[in-house]
Nucleic acid binder design. Structure first.
Lengths: 123, 123
DNA sequence: CAGAATCCCTTGGGATACTG
DNA sequence: CAGTATCCCAAGGGATTCTG
């Protein structure tokens, strides 16, 4: 295979495959989005509980935005409970649930390769 | 389980599990990083080839930074070839290779759930 | 309680020009 | 060829305040 061919092949990869990876990453690359998804997966959650589990290190404004982003991305949905004051429950969609194993894989990957700086890294 | 307990449990999850997911995402969330990793996986690559495969939509400056980031993250390594002008080959490390299946999973996930906006999303 | 409005600041990435 | 230096801009996220 000549060099031009391999370049063309690579262009195919870029156009047809790689872009989709970035699509996925865009949806979960928010500062807190993956954390929110993982936490919501554990149990039904309300706004203030999610904030609490994030150690209150996220502002209301930011949490609201991230939740809205996740909703727009169709990863979560919310149910507004009747009564006052207003309470809201957040759920994962099927799409969101399908992402959990991948987030778990990322977690395991980080754990496995955490600070390996050995010459044996190249195989 | 009382509410306080579940909150505490969630705090454990946050501290022990979720942070690592973000560690991983931080390494690959650069605008081009996942794309670069996928392309490098296909074959040995040089700076200008990587740029070409990205359709020249990335500036030299940015490409240099992303490659350096990936190197610092220990996802790739480079080999400087003797001679002039200088040529450089980039390789995936074991850590980087281990990430490919996950990137592939993200790709498949995107494809599978691309624009599903149905009420059946909630199961 | 669950957010939206406003304001501000940091960061990432683009463009261009230069170098060993 | 493979970068680095410099400059710039848009976007993301934080803090605070306000509201239904």
């Amino acid at each position: 295979m000549r060099k031009e061919d391999s370049t063309n092949l690579a262009n195919q990869l870029f156009l047809h495959k790689s872009c989709k990876v970035n699509e996925a990453l865009d949806l979960i690359s928010g500062r807190w989005k993956a954390l929110i998804l993982i936490y919501i997966s554990e149990e039904t959650n309300r706004f203030s509980l999610i904030k609490a589990v994030l150690d209150n290190k996220i502002s209301d404004q930011t949490l609201g935005r991230q939740l809205k982003d996740l909703e727009i991305s169709n990863l979560i949905e919310k149910e507004i409970l009747p009564g006052f004051p207003v309470r809201v429950n957040y759920y994962l969609t099927k799409k969101g649930k399908a992402l959990l194993p991948i987030l778990d894989a990322l977690d395991k990957w980080t754990e496995q390769y955490h600070e390996t700086k050995l010459s044996s890294d190249l195989e």
